[in-house]
C-alpha cells in the first residue's frame, strides 16, 4: 500500500523563493541578477538564480527565479513561490498558480488589470518609472525597490550598490531615484 508522504510534509524549510515575471525587455533577468548580488553580498545567505531560456525567453511571458536560504540550497529551481512579481497580465495569469498560499503578490497596476485575488500589493511601476524616475526602462528597478520594502529580504543600500554596479553608465541617477520611489511607495502599502 502506498504511503502518504507529500500530505504530511510542511514546506516550512528555511527557503524563500522569488519570481520576477513580465515580458521580454522589461528587465526581469537584470532584476534577478542584481537581487542575487545584493543578497549574496554579505555571505550570510546562499542564493541561486535561474531564468527562462531559449524560445521560452522570446515568447510572451518571461521569468527569472531567485531562491534564497541561509542553508545549502538543494533544489535550485523554484518549487512554491513566496513572492511573485508580475509586470504584465500574461505573466500573472501564467504564474499565479505557482504562488504559495499566503505568498506575496506584487503587480504592476499600470499593465495588469484583472487580479485573481484581493490579496496583493499593487503599484503602477511602469507609470512611476516614466513619470517620476524619467524613463520607462527603470520600471524593473522601481519594482525591486518595492520588493525590498515589502520583504526586508535585502538591505536597501546593498540593492542600490548592486543596481549601480550593473546599470549602464549615465543612468545612475535615474536608477537610484527609481529604487527610492519604489521603496517609499511600497512602505506606505505595507500591511
Amino acid at each position: 500500500m502506498a504511503v502518504r508522504i507529500l500530505d504530511k510534509i510542511k514546506t516550512s524549510q528555511d527557503r524563500f523563493e522569488i519570481r520576477l515575471s513580465g515580458s521580454g525587455g522589461q528587465g526581469m533577468i537584470f532584476g534577478s541578477v542584481v537581487l542575487c548580488e545584493a543578497i549574496g553580498k554579505e555571505g550570510a545567505k546562499n542564493v541561486v538564480q535561474s531564468q527562462s531560456y531559449g524560445p521560452e525567453a522570446r515568447g510572451g511571458a518571461s521569468k527569472a527565479d531567485v531562491v534564497i536560504s541561509s542553508e545549502e540550497i538543494y533544489y535550485p529551481k523554484a518549487m512554491k513561490l513566496d513572492l511573485l512579481l508580475a509586470m504584465t497580465q500574461e505573466a500573472l495569469d501564467k504564474y499565479y498558480k505557482d504562488l504559495k498560499e499566503n505568498g506575496i503578490l506584487v503587480v504592476d497596476t499600470s499593465l495588469v488589470t484583472e487580479m485573481p485575488t484581493k490579496d496583493y500589493y499593487g503599484l503602477p511601476f511602469t507609470q512611476m518609472a516614466r513619470e517620476e524616475a524619467g524613463h520607462v526602462m527603470v520600471a524593473n528597478v522601481v519594482a525591486l525597490g518595492a520588493i525590498c520594502a515589502l520583504t526586508g529580504i535585502v538591505k536597501k543600500e546593498d540593492l542600490i550598490e548592486a543596481v549601480l554596479l550593473r546599470a549602464p553608465r549615465g543612468t545612475e541617477d535615474r536608477n537610484r531615484k527609481a529604487l527610492e520611489i519604489g521603496y517609499n511607495e511600497a512602505l506606505k502599502l505595507k500591511k
Partner: peptide, 10 residues
C-alpha cells in the same frame, strides 16, 4: 547539463 550550465549562484 543545461540546468547547471545556465543557473547563477554566488
Amino acid at each position: 547539463d543545461e540546468v547547471i550550465a545556465h543557473m547563477r549562484a554566488i
